[in-house]
Structures are given as structure tokens and as C-alpha cells.
């Protein structure tokens, strides 16, 4: 039997597959899939009908799944070896530049205590000023950029530590 841990948003599901038989969270269901092309388009076939899905890999074990009325990032982890679930690493305290730009303002320094939603850095990109706010209350661990600096997509700007 093959086991898969699926995570969507904050919700976790366990899917088990053996031959033609499928269980979700321990309950056996009738489900099968039918590929519509080689590019991630397929149908899920259930008792009550068929539904079209599109799946596209984003990074290791993470897929963007699109279907009528829903588009979600889905983590699918096959149970590997001893059934140990690989932790999805999520660096929640890192404020990264989502697009290239120039740092227009840095409003915090290392060691500062910040409130949830407090503005940390202002980035200029596409002739717009974008404010980057603290996703939670915490302490500034590191400031990685300075005013006037160019940043690339994905560059870390501020490292925050959540207040325990």
C-alpha cells in the first residue's frame, strides 16, 4: 500500500492507494483518474461524476492545483522509507522581496521590537512604493538591506523572530 500526506492550506489529508482501491483519512472511496493530456490536465472520476483538474509542479512536493472554483497550492508527500513525514520548511520570519526593486526606506534596525503589521521596509518597484509589514509581533533579528540598495526577487530584506 502507498501512502500520501496531502496538505492544503492548514488542512491535512491522508490518502492510501492499493491497486484500484483508495482510502482518504481511513475511509474507502471510489475514485480514479483519467489523463486528458500530458501537461497536467486530468479528470477525477467519482461515483457522482467527473471533475476536471490541472496540476502544475511549483517546487519539490508542492503543486498548484486548479479546478472549477478553486486554485490552491497543494503539498503531496509520498511516505518515504520509514514513514517519516518530511517537514515542509517554512521560514516564516524572513521578509523577502517578491519582485526586483530598490530599497526606498528601512524603518527598523536589528534588535527592534515590532508590532504585528508594523512597516519594516519600503521598496520601490514599477514606480510604486510597497510597504512590507511584520506578519506578526516580534523582534528584528537582522536587517539585510540598506536604503538605495537594489534587490532581486527572493532576496531577504529583514529577518524577524516571533515573540513567543
Amino acid at each position: 500500500m502507498d501512502k500520501y500526506h496531502v496538505t492544503i492550506g492548514g488542512k491535512e489529508y491522508q490518502v492510501e492507494i492499493e491497486g484500484e482501491r483508495v482510502w482518504i483519512d481511513g475511509n474507502e472511496v471510489y475514485a480514479g483518474i483519467h489523463f486528458l493530456n500530458d501537461d497536467g490536465l486530468f479528470m477525477l472520476e467519482r461515483d457522482e461524476g467527473k471533475r476536471e483538474f490541472h496540476i502544475k509542479p511549483r517546487e519539490e512536493d508542492v503543486y498548484q492545483v486548479t479546478t472549477r472554483g478553486l486554485q490552491v497550492d497543494t503539498v503531496v508527500q509520498p511516505e518515504r522509507g520509514h514513514g517519516k513525514k518530511r517537514e515542509v520548511k517554512k521560514d516564516e520570519g524572513s521578509i523577502n522581496a517578491p519582485i526586483p526593486g530598490v530599497v526606498s526606506q528601512v524603518l527598523v534596525t536589528a534588535g527592534d521590537a515590532v508590532d504585528n503589521n508594523q512597516v519594516l521596509v519600503v521598496l520601490e518597484s514599477m514606480k510604486m512604493l510597497m510597504e512590507f509589514r511584520a506578519p506578526f509581533a516580534g523582534t528584528v533579528e537582522k536587517v539585510l538591506v540598506s536604503k538605495g540598495q537594489n534587490v532581486e526577487k527572493g532576496d531577504g530584506m529583514v529577518a524577524l523572530k516571533r515573540t513567543e
Partner: peptide, 21 residues
Amino acid sequence: DEEKLLKETALAAALFIHNKL
């Protein structure tokens, strides 16, 4: 309804990956 759809999605994604593997 959305809960149900999420569950379907989990099922679809797992089956897809299973078949690909």
C-alpha cells in the same frame, strides 16, 4: 461545499502523483 472540494482536490492530487510515480 468548500471543505468537500478541498478533500476532492487532495484525492485528485494524490492519485495524480501516485500514477506519475
